[in-house]
Amino acid sequence: MVSIYTLYVVNKSGGLIYSRDFTSVAKVDLNDALRLASIWHSMHAISSQLSPVPGCTGVELLEADTFTLHCFQTLTGTKFLLVVEPNTPYVPALLQRIYEVYSDYVLKNPFYEVEQVIKCELFDEHLELAVRRHNV
């Protein structure tokens, strides 16, 4: 059962700081990932300013025929973009779990500098575990 395709983490400046494919179906090259991160960051910022809904924080969901892209934005402006199969259940809960893993293994790592590229084996391991549990 393949439902989770790819995770992107975008810093508050719109830079791609993490990318991870979970299936061979969704292989995206780095240049495409960088473009997606930049476009999403801009679209997210513009939509939050143009929205007639008070307190709107930006686009959170993009639905297409072959995938759905969910966005979870933290209070610091870091965005977690998760590309999944259409109609994948419990994606907001999975994004929350991914953020918890990020908080535990990236932000608490004394060698990690905020907003820089994420290179943390413990984060990779626990992220893989969270996605595997979701795909069961």
Rank of each mutant, 00 (worst) to 15 (best):
T57I: 14
L75R: 14
P110G: 11
K79W: 01
W40F: 14
G55P: 06
L122P: 06
D124P: 01
S51R: 09
C56A: 15
T78R: 02
S48P: 04
Y90E: 05
L95Q: 13
F80P: 01
L69W: 00
N87F: 11
L75D: 09
V101S: 03
I98N: 03
C56S: 15
L62S: 06
L95D: 04
E60Q: 15
V106A: 04
K119D: 08
P110C: 12
S42Q: 14
T68Q: 04
F67G: 02
T74Q: 02
D65A: 12
E115G: 04
F67H: 09
L95H: 07
S103C: 14
D104S: 14
D104G: 10
K79N: 02
V117L: 13
L69C: 08
F80A: 02
N109S: 14
H44K: 10
C56G: 09
I118S: 05
A64M: 13
S51V: 09
G77K: 03
V106I: 11
E60C: 10
S48E: 14
A64H: 13
V83R: 06
V101I: 15
F80Y: 04
Y102A: 00
V83N: 01
H70S: 13
M43F: 12
L122S: 14
E85F: 05
G77S: 09
L94S: 03
G58D: 00
Q73K: 13
C120D: 09
E85S: 11
D124L: 07
P89F: 06
G77T: 00
L122W: 08
L95A: 09
A64L: 13
P110Q: 11
Y112P: 02
H41G: 04
N87E: 14
C56F: 11
S103G: 14
V117C: 12
P110R: 11
T76L: 06
Y99H: 13
E113D: 12
E115R: 00
L69M: 14
Y99G: 05
S47K: 08
P89D: 01
S51Y: 08
M43H: 06
P86C: 10
E60V: 10
E125I: 10
T57D: 04
E63V: 15
Y99S: 06
F80G: 03
P54Q: 13
V84G: 04
P89K: 13
A93S: 15
E113C: 10
H126D: 06
P89V: 12
H41E: 04
V84Q: 00
L94H: 02
V106R: 01
L122F: 10
L82F: 04
T88P: 05
E121D: 15
L94F: 07
P54W: 09
T66L: 09
I118K: 05
E121P: 05
E121C: 08
L82D: 02
P92S: 07
Q116P: 05
K119A: 13
T66R: 12
S103K: 10
E113N: 10
Y90D: 06
